[in-house]
């Protein structure tokens, strides 16, 4: 057990380092995130100027939400990308057969790798635009240390939920050979239903409830509400429980799908 944990740490660490070699790309990305953060902030300011309590947020909440969105966009890999893309590539080349025969869990391996990547993206493309946003606008910050802890847990769970979704998308390559189309579509849903374009709390009537029950709500809306203190006490537990639930459901689904894929590879030889 201990050796497995240390292996996953090693995998995560290696993945972290792999992403940290693309320095120019990271700077370019931070710039782009900051530009979009500005655009979205001003859009929200215009919305909340017209309706100062829209979605139960005030204008500072909304602007903070805009920057949290930019911080999460790469951390949860909304546009896909990350370790799961490696899987899709390895399915296409057939190298995945090697992975399936490894004596360690394929799912654990890729999850560790994706968490390593997410860690790097959070510290660079998450933190840097957030600091920029904080310099330009008055933002809201977690009220106390406990909220910070809750937020940190929620971010990790956001990554695992998004990993589960992306993993299922990549695994479709076992049957479709090419996952480009599915990936495209998945990215569209993720972009919209994570609340990156517009907060889920602004959705009219029942659509807001539906959107907030979907797994994509874990990406941004849930961590943001914890950060902003919209969830207090038992609500925090419920919010984190919601993310845990989706994590379990999705990872279980991944497990089943990979088991089937394994049988398929064994029977058909890839």
């Amino acid at each position: 057990m201990r050796s497995t944990v240390s292996l996953w740490f090693a995998v995560a660490h290696r993945s972290f380092r792999r992403y940290s070699t693309y320095r120019a790309a990271t700077f370019a990305g931070i710039f782009t995130n900051s530009v979009f953060g500005l655009i979205i902030s001003f859009t929200y300011i215009a919305v909340w100027k017209q309706n100062p309590t829209a979605g139960g947020y005030d204008v500072a909440d909304a602007v903070t939400y805009a920057w949290l969105g930019q911080a999460m966009i790469m951390t949860v890999a909304v546009w896909s990308g990350g370790a799961t893309d490696d899987l899709a590539a390895r399915i296409k080349t057939g190298d995945v057969a090697i992975d399936l025969y490894r004596p360690v869990s394929l799912l654990g391996w890729y999850l560790a790798s994706d968490l390593g990547r997410a860690g790097y993206h959070l510290l660079t493309r998450g933190l840097a635009p957030m600091i920029f946003g904080a310099l330009v606008f008055d933002l809201h910050y977690p009220a106390n240390a406990l909220v910070w802890v809750h937020f940190a847990v929620s971010v990790v769970l956001a990554v695992t939920v998004s990993f589960g979704v992306r993993m299922l998308v990549s695994a479709s390559a076992f049957w479709l050979l090419d996952d480009t189309g599915v990936k495209h579509l998945a990215a569209v849903f993720a972009m919209f239903f994570s609340g990156l374009a517009v907060p889920l709390v602004l959705f009219p009537g029942w659509t807001s409830d539906v959107a907030q029950a979907l797994p994509w709500a874990s990406y941004l809306q849930v961590p943001a509400d914890i950060w902003l203190g919209k969830d207090q006490g038992a609500d925090v537990l419920a919010a984190v429980g919601f993310q845990v639930l989706w994590t379990v459901v999705l990872l279980l689904a991944c497990h089943l799908v990979l088991a089937r894929a394994n049988r398929k590879v064994v029977v058909q030889g890839g």
């Binding site: 309706n51 990215a187 972009m191 919209f192 602004l202 009219p204």
Partner: peptide, 23 residues
């Protein structure tokens, strides 16, 4: 897909306008 991606873009604006009358 291209149609939908950009379509949702506009839906986001519609969502905003479910909360306001003008921007």
């Amino acid at each position: 897909g291209q149609f939908l991606i950009t379509g949702l873009d506009f839906v986001a604006i519609l969502v905003m306008f479910s909360n306001v009358d003008a921007l």
